[in-house]
Nucleic acid binder design. Structure first.
Length: 461
RNA sequence: GAGGUUGUAGCUCAGUUGGUUAGAGCGUCAGAUUGUGGCUCUGAAGGCCGGGGGUUCGAGUCCCCUCUUCCUCCCCA
């Protein structure tokens, strides 16, 4: 190769016409359901101020935020900004060279939006947002550096009806996309806090949930071992062990937890919330197999405070395809406390991969042209264009080959773009005010006059 | 951030222990067919073997660095 092969940056992709047809199928399904449930669309910019984003996603999350370099020569006058290059680490340097970043998710920009425009928003405010987000993660299966999230959030209402409705949305979208065997897992941060409280490890809540989250991957023994290494007492481990046993049995988990958490006010509140949500969703048609309490579900985002959801297709080979949860004080960080919120997000790119791997797409036979005109030269093409405009006036997809090249070539092109009919106005047809029409499926061909053709089209339309 | 893996024609890939002029299929282009696609046949073009450095008489092949692909951990959608 004489030149460097061009390519998109690491972890970022192009989408051709075929891929766009499939992606739009996913987006339009999600959008349709969101709107049916009364959500309104908004968009926010690709970049936010760096300070808006940092500290919301945990330590790991902060590392994965794409920072955008300031414009201008920021090293030119270091004294002005108080920058001493001789004694500075990269963290301190960052503040001086970057004050914008690409959004990491859609929830935090939305919280910023709500605080900024709260005076003109109907509260509770239900919005949906379908836009790309960026994470400086290492790409791998189902993981990209640029991917689309499809969020729906309700702010300004603490009612659990919102949780139930979001579950109904998850259920409806995934059912419409014909995804078999998806499971909505639900948990509540208050339950996790309650368990930690009863086990006497409230202070190590994070390391507790991180270890517990790995249960289905590494098993009970290893989870307990990891907790032991983190310095949990024997007594604590014994209690946690009981919880794990109950969780793995998946039978009477609810009644066990109600007993186990009876001494914890927070834990009991979490239980009440989850019980209500599961029961109500069930009454509204979400089956028990689809919606399940999973007390090992933790989720990494720092801002969740109540119910948390995650959707997986067990055995599909893909990670979670949707997630969400309640965040009761996200707007407080931006100076507006007391505005609760809850939301969900579909990972469109993972759904895309999953539908592709399981061959779940309907066929998108998109013929660009119903009538495709060949180009025989200047005078002939003008007549073709006149007819084409008449057709377009009747909302018929049609067009002409722009150059008067060899007919064979034009035919090959018409075949490639899957035109239904090819129309010819050459010198012969021009003289007789006629037009050749070839059906590209059957290969049949006939000639009719221009007037007849227009008449026929008008009748069909 | 840690570990592994991949890179050869537009695409998918061969290329033996280092040894002449790096191959195939598909695609592209031209012709068989002067105004008609798919099928067939004939022919042609197309490569600094990801990039840089090194070992060697000699490197697609061995060594180092870097980028990239895919995967695992971490974390996540």
């Amino acid at each position: 190769m004489s030149q460097q092969k061009p390519s998109a940056p690491k972890g970022m992709r192009d989408f051709g016409p075929e891929e766009m047809a499939r992606r739009n199928y996913i987006f339009s399904t999600i959008r349709r359901v969101y709107e049916k449930f009364g959500f309104s669309p908004i968009e926010t910019p690709a970049m936010e101020k760096l300070e808006t984003l940092t500290g919301k996603y945990g330590e790991e999350g902060d590392r994965l935020i794409f920072k955008v370099l300031n414009s201008g020569d920021y090293l030119k006058e270091p004294k002005v900004s108080g920058l001493d290059l001789n004694q500075i680490d990269s963290k301190k340097l960052l503040r001086h060279i970057s004050e914008k970043a690409l959004r990491y998710d859609l929830t935090v920009p939305f919280a910023r939006y709500v605080v900024q425009y709260h005076h003109q928003l109907p509260i509770p405010f239900k919005r949906y947002q379908i836009q790309p987000v960026w994470r400086a993660d290492n790409p791998q299966k189902g993981r990209y550096r640029e991917f689309y999230q499809c969020d729906a959030d309700v702010v300004g209402s603490a009612s659990l009806i919102n949780e139930v409705e979001l579950i109904l949305i998850l259920h409806e979208v995934l059912t419409e996309l014909k995804i078999q065997g998806f499971k909505i897992y639900i948990n509540n941060r208050k339950i996790l806090a309650g368990i930690a409280e009863v086990a006497g490890i409230s202070k190590q809540l994070v390391s507790f949930t991180v270890a517990l989250d790995k249960l289905d991957k590494i098993g009970k023994e290893n989870v307990l071992h990891e907790m032991q290494q983190n310095g949990f007492s024997e007594d604590s481990l014994k209690k946690i062990s009981q919880v794990i046993d109950a969780a793995e049995l998946k039978k009477n988990t609810l009644s066990f937890l109600k007993k186990f958490l009876s001494s914890s006010e927070t834990g009991m509140k979490g239980m009440d919330e989850v019980s209500y949500v599961i029961k109500t969703a069930h009454e509204l048609g979400v089956s028990n197999e689809t919606l399940e309490l999973d007390i090992t579900l933790a989720r990494g985002l720092d801002y969740y405070t109540g119910c948390i959801f995650e959707v997986k297709v067990p055995g599909s080979g893909f990670g979670s395809i949707a997630g969400g949860g309640r965040y009761d004080d996200l707007t407080g960080i931006f100076g507006m406390p007391g505005l609760p919120g809850v939301g969900i997000s579909f990972g469109a790119d993972r759904i895309y991969d999953l539908l592709l791997a399981h061959k779940l797409y309907p066929s998108f036979e998109s013929t660009r042209y119903k009538y495709f005109f060949l180009n025989f030269g200047e005078t002939e093409s003008k007549e073709s264009l006149r007819l084409i405009q008449i057709l377009r006036g009747k909302n018929i997809r049609c067009g002409i080959y722009p150059d008067a090249v060899k007919i064979k070539k034009q035919m090959e092109y018409a075949d490639k773009v899957k035109a239904e009919y090819v129309c010819t106005i050459g010198s012969n047809e021009l003289l007789e005010r006629k037009l050749g029409i070839k059906n590209m499926h059957t290969g049949e061909q006939h000639t009719i006059s221009w007037d007849e053709f227009i008449q026929q089209i008008t009748q069909e339309a």
